[in-house]
Amino acid sequence: MKPSAVVPAFEEALRQLGVRVRRERGPFRGGLCVVDGEAVVVLNRQHPDEAQAAVLAAALREHGGADELYLRPAVRAALEDAWAQADAGQTAEVADDD
């Protein structure tokens, strides 16, 4: 599954879990945080789809509940592959804009 298709699928899964997804610009990688008591994933809009997919997959793992969601088999496989890559230390690296 192409990263350009994975990103919206992961975003939808997070929305089903009650997590808001925002895109911002700046010198950051992105990730899951809590803003005013609400779970939010912030994505760096300047990063490629591969890096955004890795951030979203990490947020799905950290937030929990993804195992209880119905995800299309291709999306589930992409999520499990992203988790396996993260476990192996093979996440999409993006240089900080510092």
Score class of each variant (00 low, 15 high):
1 M>P: 09
2 K>F: 06
3 P>Y: 14
6 V>C: 10
6 V>P: 02
8 P>D: 09
9 A>E: 07
9 A>I: 04
9 A>P: 01
10 F>Q: 04
10 F>H: 08
10 F>S: 03
12 E>S: 14
12 E>G: 10
13 A>P: 02
14 L>S: 05
14 L>M: 14
16 Q>D: 14
16 Q>E: 14
17 L>Y: 08
19 V>S: 02
19 V>H: 02
19 V>G: 01
20 R>G: 13
20 R>W: 08
20 R>N: 12
20 R>C: 10
21 V>C: 07
21 V>H: 07
22 R>F: 06
22 R>K: 14
22 R>V: 12
23 R>E: 14
24 E>V: 10
24 E>D: 10
25 R>V: 11
27 P>K: 15
28 F>W: 08
29 R>K: 15
30 G>C: 03
30 G>H: 09
30 G>V: 04
31 G>Y: 05
33 C>Y: 10
33 C>L: 15
34 V>S: 10
35 V>Y: 06
35 V>R: 15
35 V>K: 13
37 G>N: 09
38 E>G: 06
38 E>A: 12
39 A>V: 00
39 A>S: 07
39 A>Y: 01
39 A>R: 05
40 V>E: 07
40 V>W: 02
42 V>P: 00
43 L>E: 01
43 L>V: 04
44 N>S: 05
44 N>D: 06
44 N>H: 07
45 R>L: 10
45 R>S: 13
46 Q>K: 11
47 H>S: 13
47 H>K: 13
47 H>V: 05
47 H>P: 02
48 P>W: 04
49 D>F: 00
49 D>V: 01
49 D>T: 05
49 D>S: 12
50 E>S: 06
51 A>Q: 06
51 A>I: 02
52 Q>L: 06
52 Q>K: 14
53 A>R: 01
53 A>M: 01
53 A>C: 01
53 A>V: 01
54 A>T: 13
54 A>W: 06
55 V>A: 05
55 V>Y: 02
55 V>F: 04
56 L>D: 02
56 L>V: 07
56 L>E: 03
57 A>N: 03
58 A>V: 03
58 A>T: 07
58 A>C: 07
59 A>T: 02
59 A>W: 00
59 A>C: 04
60 L>H: 00
61 R>S: 03
61 R>T: 01
62 E>D: 00
62 E>P: 00
62 E>G: 00
64 G>T: 01
64 G>Y: 00
66 A>F: 03
66 A>I: 03
67 D>M: 04
68 E>H: 05
68 E>K: 09
69 L>W: 04
70 Y>N: 08
71 L>S: 07
71 L>T: 10
71 L>N: 04
72 R>H: 14
72 R>Q: 14
72 R>G: 12
72 R>A: 15
73 P>G: 12
75 V>W: 03
75 V>P: 02
76 R>L: 09
77 A>Q: 12
79 L>N: 06
80 E>N: 11
80 E>L: 13
80 E>I: 07
81 D>A: 15
83 W>C: 11
84 A>T: 10
84 A>H: 10
85 Q>V: 09
87 D>H: 08
88 A>T: 04
91 T>Q: 09
92 A>K: 12
93 E>P: 05
93 E>F: 11
95 A>H: 09
96 D>R: 14
98 D>P: 11
98 D>N: 11
98 D>T: 11
